[in-house]
């Protein structure tokens, strides 16, 4: 095991008129080889933006990115387009939430799959076809032959997501970034896709960055978890630690607000208020307005403090392990 990908003090801002609003501020994390790292948070907390910048998928004209993203000794943020093209899809690939918008509706599945093979390797057509069919079978599509000649609209959501996974895995990437891959799917289909991803991870040894807002999915998939709030990491820890001993008031609130099956709950806990807007970030702790445990010290912006094996961005833990 070792660090496969390191993100160091990544800040991503969006230009809006003359101002720049930071959607992600000072985010640092790393991904261990063969592990699954889950990033959780609500919409607008910067989780998608932080991973899109790994492959530099954000429009350069309207974003301001600083920091470092190290992969195999290269800083992806400084790398040239040519180097990036070799990495995208081959070493690091990505699947998105809505498979219909990421597949080309006017091309057959087969052509799209072969395209992604040819982008990185020069292989004879026969071999490429064979590889594609094998991959489709691998992701649980039984009739691979027919699927190759079909168009995306002929498939259900779950099947399309399988095709997306096949396309992402076809070059056997070292890292797979999955941005809410199951959010648009039914629970039973979600269970199929999650078990498929676990299987592929074990078979190919791929490391996964998994973005989700569903704590249940986190519990099922993750080795390590990052909780994001308003563009910042508020808690980082192993999955067991996060669920048995959550530290940040936001994490505690999130977990407490979930309905549990089989438990009598008269009322659900709810975090008061709403997420502050990017343009109007409060000074000091960004969660303080909604926090039940706030104090005067919250007016100063807290660092990520080490607590136990994890990290928490909350002054309550500023004195370290003794709390």
């Amino acid at each position: 095991m070792g660090k496969q990908l390191e993100v160091k003090s990544l800040t991503v801002g969006f230009r809006s008129g003359r101002e720049v609003h930071n959607a992600v501020s000072n985010v640092t994390y790393y991904l261990n080889r063969g592990e699954t790292l889950c990033i959780v948070g609500e919409s607008g907390c910067g989780k998608s933006v932080s991973v899109s910048s790994i492959l530099r998928l954000l429009p350069e004209s309207s974003t301001v990115i600083s920091g470092e993203i190290l992969f195999g000794g290269i800083d992806l943020l400084q790398a040239e387009e040519k180097t990036l093209d070799q990495i995208r899809g081959d070493k690091i690939s990505m699947i998105f939430q809505e498979p219909m918008t990421s597949l080309n509706p006017s091309m057959t599945i087969g052509r799209q799959l072969i395209e992604s093979v040819n982008a990185h390797e020069r292989v004879p057509k026969e071999k490429a076809l064979d590889l594609c069919k094998r991959m489709l079978t691998e992701v649980g599509i039984h009739d691979a032959e027919r699927c190759m000649n079909a168009y995306p609209h002929e498939f259900s959501g779950g099947m399309r997501q399988r095709v997306m996974i096949a396309m992402a895995m076809i070059c056997k990437p070292e890292i797979l970034i999955a941005d809410e891959p199951t959010t648009a799917l039914d629970v039973t289909v979600q269970a199929q896709i999650l078990s498929l991803m676990r299987k592929l991870k074990n078979e190919y040894g791929t490391s996964i960055i998994f973005i989700t807002h569903d704590m249940g999915v986190v519990a099922e998939m993750a080795d390590d978890v990052i909780v994001m709030y308003a563009g910042e990491i508020v808690e980082k820890s192993s999955v067991t630690e996060l669920f048995t001993n959550p530290k940040h008031p936001y994490t505690k609130g999130l977990l407490a607000s979930l309905p549990h099956i089989g438990e009598k709950q008269n009322r659900l806990y709810s975090i008061e208020g709403t997420v502050p807007s990017l343009a109007n970030m409060p000074a000091g702790c960004r969660f303080k307005q909604r926090c039940k445990e706030k104090c005067d010290a919250c007016n100063v912006h807290p660092d990520l403090y080490k607590s136990g094996e994890g990290y928490v961005r909350c002054v309550l833990y500023s004195r370290g392990d003794d709390l």
Binding site: A219, V239, F243
Partner: peptide, 16 residues
């Protein structure tokens, strides 16, 4: 099939 927010749950998920 419902993912439960509990770690260490037995993974005897029935797949459809």
């Amino acid at each position: 099939a419902i993912p439960q927010p509990v770690v260490g749950r037995k993974k005897d998920i029935l797949l459809l």
